[in-house]
């Protein structure tokens, strides 16, 4: 069972309190964008996800805690969390991920 650092609680908490919520940084098109989107583009937004070997940006939900969704960089090979950050923050750069790994 992993320990996950919740960026809102600012604590490491047991994985049991959390739920995985899919890939991060996939932004839902607004109504204007939706209207303009081709079926192909819409289906790409809906159904196509990266299957990354290595550092993956993903969403987690602190369901049995502060109730907040947040993002994480997690390595899909080692399962380890490198860092977690709030939904409003941008995907960390490779450099930031590297720095976090060495922490």
């Amino acid at each position: 069972m992993l320990l996950i650092h919740c960026p809102h609680c600012n604590e490491e908490r047991p994985e049991l309190e959390f739920a995985y919520a899919g890939e991060a940084h996939i932004v839902r098109p607004n109504e204007a964008e939706q209207a303009e989107m081709s079926d192909a583009d819409w289906s790409k937004f809906m159904f196509i996800r990266d299957n990354i070997r290595g550092d993956h940006a993903e969403r987690w939900w602190h369901a049995h805690g502060c109730n907040m969704f947040f993002n994480a960089i997690r390595n899909t090979v080692t399962d380890k969390f490198t860092m977690t950050y709030k939904v409003c923050q941008k995907r960390p750069t490779e450099h930031q991920i590297k720095v976090a790994k060495n922490d």
Binding site: R59, W61, A63, N67, M68, F69
Partner: peptide
Amino acid sequence: YRHMEDYLQTEFT
């Protein structure tokens, strides 16, 4: 509940 919270927190902020 989760579905609603998810949209509220991450899309319709």
